[in-house]
């Protein structure tokens, strides 16, 4: 479990996106909503993007993050 100090923020971030599955947020927007610094959030969002939990759209200051829903298979 690397970067254990970021875990609580990762959980908070995931919870936000799961509760708002259609939200499109910039780092600044997310920072305002969660009350966390953009610098901390950037680290967390990169990690979540690597795990394909969130998806980044756009570049630079126009970067927007959105939640990627898991796939469902009915037996």
């Amino acid at each position: 479990m690397s970067k254990a100090e970021y875990l609580p923020l990762q959980i908070e971030c995931i919870h936000f996106f799961e509760s708002n599955p259609f939200a499109f947020e910039t780092v600044e927007g997310l920072s305002t909503r969660l009350g966390k610094s953009p610098k901390e959030l950037e680290v967390v969002l990169v990690e979540l993007e690597t795990l394909a939990i969130v998806e980044k759209v756009g570049l630079g200051s126009n970067e927007i993050y959105r939640y990627v829903q898991p796939v469902e298979e009915v037996l």
Binding site: M1, L7, Q10, E47, L51, P70, V71, E73, V74, L75
Partner: peptide, 26 residues
């Protein structure tokens, strides 16, 4: 996030009045 796993899934067996069993995966 905890395990840094590249794949995770939840299979839900039939529950009472719920629909058929389902697998959620990422």
């Amino acid at each position: 996030v905890l395990v840094k796993s590249k794949f995770s899934s939840v299979f839900v067996h039939q529950q009472a009045n719920l629909a058929a069993p389902q697998l959620y995966a990422r």
